[in-house]
């Protein structure tokens, strides 16, 4: 496709722009890096919020209360039946005595009021914890319906308000993240595209001469596409570096905050390279078709 001398020229030119336009390249990387930093921050917040929501979801559980008068064998037989229900992760037996002790603990200083009772009014129950996939309203309802028809079960309780709130917040958060990510993404493409257009406008004469002497559009494009990719990569590294620095600085104050994994960092930089390539390509496509050479 290209001769060796042309390939050597293209490689040289891909990096020559950084040397020829030190200041503008620096400013471009800084602007791109800022847009990408916002995107990275948003991604990190989404990641942490998602993690927090997942932890909150771990609090979704069910209490299955049993009728009085069941003997211990009947109660014990329920456990294996509960365990095999899809979505149930763990089943814990809570005797009336354990339930009373937990109740007393919950009352704290007012626990003395329970001493007035002649007998323990609390029934035996099973405490069900759920698998991560079943920590939503639909799955919890399905489990409840399956257990409710059993004759040994008197009542089933679960924290519906908590689940409802969590579902609602998760949805709102996902929508907000999506909208903001889209806006920031478009802003980043716009910034990259515009900076490449400026670079090309500054190189208008070079491009014009290239076209006059018979350079193909592909040949003209390659150094600018490569430059866009390199700028995207450097801006991505800058954004990750700044975010990492901020994370390191705030680490003591924001305990438990998770940062990107090594794979995620490489993924983000790869994304920035593609972003630089896309921005350059979009800018060049318009520019090369608009230009008249003579």
């Amino acid at each position: 496709m290209f001769k060796n001398a042309q390939v050597a020229y293209l490689v040289r030119e891909s990096f020559a722009g950084f040397h020829r336009r030190k200041l503008t390249t620096g400013v471009t990387i800084l602007i791109m890096g800022s847009a990408l930093l916002v995107l990275a921050m948003l991604t990190l917040v989404t990641l942490n919020m998602g993690n927090m929501l997942e932890k909150a979801r771990a609090g979704i559980d069910m209490r299955v209360f049993l009728h009085e008068g069941l003997d211990s064998r009947q109660m014990a037989e329920l456990q294996p039946r509960l365990v095999i229900i899809p979505g149930v992760q763990n089943v814990a037996w809570i005797s009336p005595e354990t339930a009373l002790a937990q109740f007393k603990e919950g009352l704290g200083e007012d626990a003395g009021i329970l001493d007035m009772l002649d007998s323990n009014p609390l029934p035996a129950s099973y405490h069900l914890t759920l698998t991560p996939g079943a920590r939503n309203l639909k799955a919890v309802e399905a489990i409840r319906e399956e257990i409710a028809v059993w004759g040994e079960v008197s009542e089933i309780l679960f924290n519906q308000g908590w689940i409802d709130a969590l579902e609602s917040w998760t949805f709102r958060f996902q929508m907000a993240s999506l909208v903001v990510s889209l806006i920031v993404f478009l802003a980043a493409v716009f910034v990259i595209s515009n900076t490449v257009k400026l670079t090309m406008a500054a190189s208008a004469r070079v491009i014009q001469i290239q076209k006059l002497v018979g350079a193909t559009n592909t040949f003209i494009r390659i150094p600018y596409l490569a430059e866009g990719m390199i700028q995207g990569m450097l801006a991505g590294i800058l954004a990750m570096g700044l975010l990492g620095l901020a994370g390191w600085f705030l680490d003591g104050r924001l305990g438990g905050v998770i940062f990107f994994s090594v794979q995620q960092i490489f993924g983000f930089i790869l994304f920035c390279i593609v972003l630089g390539l896309t921005g350059s390509f979009a800018a060049m496509r318009k520019y090369l078709t608009m230009q008249s050479e003579i």
Binding site: R20, V206, V213
Partner: peptide, 24 residues
């Protein structure tokens, strides 16, 4: 004239040859 102002006379002439792949 449409010369590249930031390049020498020789580089201006080399440039159009590089584009079409003439060896150094």
């Amino acid at each position: 004239f449409r010369l590249l102002e930031d390049r020498s006379v020789e580089d201006n002439i080399s440039f159009v040859q590089l584009v079409v792949g003439i060896p150094h």
